[in-house]
């Protein structure tokens, strides 16, 4: 697996932490209070992510998958349970976890390059170096030539590329992606998925990718967590055995269709006519 390959770039202290999972969630529970009622957004979510893994979290809207990501990011706190990153509990947001939102969240008053350079400047980089690094990052995501454009001049896909470049600039250990392609049109979406696998392959980053699109989850992930709603919880945890590197050809792989059907069945059961008590039905699919 990828986790055993020492990354030549980025990570520095590999030796001590290779065999322990990079990220561990233990019994994470999250409840909200709405109109005097308590809503359980997440129940007993526990899993581990080894370094370098691309983990997709798949689930219908309202299954708490975004909430889970926000808790890992440190933006929200769990009602109970814990999140550990490299053995240390997560309490607040940090640059070690680069967050990408569904909306690109670029500042409209800054050029693309200035948007990407901003986190670097906040980190105390010299203006010149930040500018150079931003240009490199933009080249990585295929946005060379758009350095001086404003976000309003870019398409949705290009904006997300810029947001990805900005997030990569944080030099994070983990990329947290909250349905980043959810607002894009179908074609752009497919292209972005292929771009992301390419960039991920080169970066060796750990990624947690939230989506409600089954094909997207399977195509991108080494592993897919399937989540159910009300309360949000993990109903299946499946390793994806599709060859790497993946690309356009993977989308025609018959195995992808098999995974698709398997997950669709799970989700169908979950969203069945009556959300009754029997919810442990599909624990480990064939």
């Amino acid at each position: 697996m990828l986790s055993s390959n020492a990354a030549p770039s980025g990570a520095t202290t590999m030796e001590a932490i290779t065999d322990q999972p990079q990220l561990r969630l233990t019994g994470v529970r999250k409840t909200f209070h709405r109109d005097r009622k308590t809503v359980e957004a997440l129940r007993d979510v526990s899993f581990e992510v080894p370094r370098g893994q691309f983990l997709s979290a798949l689930g219908p809207s309202g299954c708490g998958k975004s909430t889970m990501l926000h808790i890992i990011g440190g933006f929200e706190t769990a009602t109970s349970g814990s999140v550990h990153l490299d053995g240390k509990p997560v309490t607040a947001p940090g640059r070690d976890r680069g967050m990408m939102f569904q909306q690109a969240t670029l500042f409209p008053w800054k050029t693309v390059q200035a948007n990407v350079a901003w986190p670097l400047l906040v980190d105390g980089w010299k203006r010149k170096h930040a500018r150079e690094r931003a240009r490199e990052l933009l080249a990585t995501v295929g946005l060379s030539g758009f350095e001086h454009s404003y976000p309003a001049e870019l398409s949705g896909g290009m904006r997300q590329r810029a947001a990805l470049a900005r997030t990569l600039g944080l030099a994070p250990d983990i990329l947290l992606m909250d349905e980043p392609f959810g607002a894009l049109d179908a074609q752009t979406r497919e292209l972005m998925q292929e771009e992301l696998t390419r960039i991920w392959q080169e970066s060796q980053l750990t990624v947690i990718f939230i989506t409600h699109d089954i094909n997207e989850a399977v195509f991108l992930g080494d592993r897919v967590l399937v989540m159910g709603a009300r309360p949000g919880r993990i109903i299946a945890d499946v390793e994806i055995e599709l060859d790497r590197p993946r690309g356009a050809h993977t989308k025609r792989d018959p195995k992808l269709v098999e995974y698709h059907n398997e997950f669709w069945d799970l989700i169908r059961q979950e969203a069945g006519p009556q959300p009754s008590g029997s919810r442990d039905a599909g624990e480990t699919p064939s």
Binding site: P93, G94, G98, M99, F101, T105, F107, W118, V122, D123
Partner: peptide, 22 residues
């Protein structure tokens, strides 16, 4: 927006920096 503020927190921008830049 909340995401703009979360972005600033993710980046580690101080309170004054967030005020000035966001």
């Amino acid at each position: 927006t909340t995401t703009q503020l979360w972005l600033a927190r993710n980046v580690g921008a101080s309170w004054s920096r967030t005020l000035r830049d966001v």
